[in-house]
Simulated scan of single mutants.
Amino acid sequence: MTVLYRVLQVTAAPAIRLIWRPKFTGQEHIPRRGPVLIVANHLSAADHYFLGLITARHIATMAKIEYFAQPGIKGKLIGAVFNGLGQVPVDRSGGRAALDGLGASEQILRDDRVLAVFPEGTRSPDGRLYKGKTGAARLALATGATVIPAGIRGTQDVQTEGSIMPKMAKVRIDLGKPLDFTDRLTDSPDRVTLREVTDEIMRAIQALSGQEYVDMFATRAKRELAEKAAKEAEEKGGPEAG
């Protein structure tokens, strides 16, 4: 646990509890020691702040590598904060870079710490639960960490994408019983096993979050929504231009 994280525990954490009064259930499922992998839906950047309140143990999370390499004094400050919070930089371009990010995450679990991951890979564009990527399953099967599903509600109303100032909203996080994958532990799982475990994780998250499930990756959904918005804007602007 870093010095910055300790400082935030006695400053920011009490303030968040006092202002938003988030509700948590199932905290008894988190072991006091040993590796723990918390798998949750992803609605907002605020998810990180509220997840950090569910246990006294330090929770590391994965953050896109761009946060660690921004230019200028502000960029360096942001990078320092993310490092201080124990964030793990991950390259979301895929391939070898993505696997390297999983390696850093795996080490956290092998050090008997707590790691929270969002299997969707990015924030939901519309509040629904999207198809999970297999990174969380790979970590679970390689480390044997206790896997705790979590359903987050309300954070999308606290901080929407692109907004700076948080808003008041009801936030709730429900933690489920540990998922048992002990019969499938391996450092080299095949694709079928990874998909089966991932889908089991997503079903557990859905049961806790109450979201509608979409059998599509959130990154693809975001791309399609952006293309649709661009097309509508072009069609709307066409007659005006004429």
Rank of each mutant, 00 (worst) to 15 (best):
36 V>Y: 10
36 V>S: 06
36 V>G: 04
36 V>F: 12
37 L>Q: 05
40 A>S: 13
41 N>K: 00
41 N>L: 01
42 H>V: 00
44 S>A: 09
44 S>I: 01
45 A>P: 10
46 A>R: 01
46 A>K: 01
48 H>D: 15
49 Y>G: 13
50 F>T: 06
50 F>K: 03
55 T>H: 11
55 T>M: 06
55 T>W: 07
56 A>W: 13
57 R>Y: 11
59 I>S: 07
59 I>C: 10
60 A>H: 15
61 T>L: 15
61 T>W: 12
61 T>P: 06
65 I>T: 10
66 E>M: 02
66 E>G: 04
70 Q>F: 04
72 G>S: 07
73 I>D: 14
75 G>K: 02
75 G>T: 11
75 G>E: 13
76 K>L: 08
76 K>D: 12
77 L>D: 13
78 I>N: 07
79 G>P: 01
80 A>Q: 09
80 A>C: 07
82 F>M: 15
82 F>T: 02
84 G>D: 12
84 G>N: 04
86 G>W: 07
86 G>S: 12
87 Q>E: 14
88 V>K: 06
89 P>W: 04
91 D>N: 09
95 G>E: 14
95 G>I: 03
97 A>H: 07
98 A>C: 03
99 L>D: 13
99 L>G: 07
101 G>T: 01
102 L>K: 04
103 G>V: 05
104 A>M: 13
104 A>H: 09
105 S>C: 11
105 S>P: 01
106 E>V: 01
106 E>W: 11
106 E>Y: 08
107 Q>E: 15
107 Q>G: 06
108 I>P: 00
109 L>C: 03
110 R>Y: 07
110 R>N: 10
110 R>G: 04
111 D>S: 04
111 D>G: 02
111 D>Y: 01
112 D>P: 00
113 R>S: 12
113 R>E: 15
114 V>Y: 08
116 A>H: 09
117 V>Y: 14
117 V>N: 11
118 F>N: 04
119 P>N: 14
120 E>M: 02
121 G>T: 07
123 R>Y: 07
124 S>A: 09
125 P>D: 15
125 P>N: 10
126 D>T: 09
126 D>E: 12
128 R>V: 10
130 Y>L: 00
131 K>V: 02
131 K>S: 11
132 G>R: 00
133 K>F: 12
134 T>I: 10
136 A>R: 00
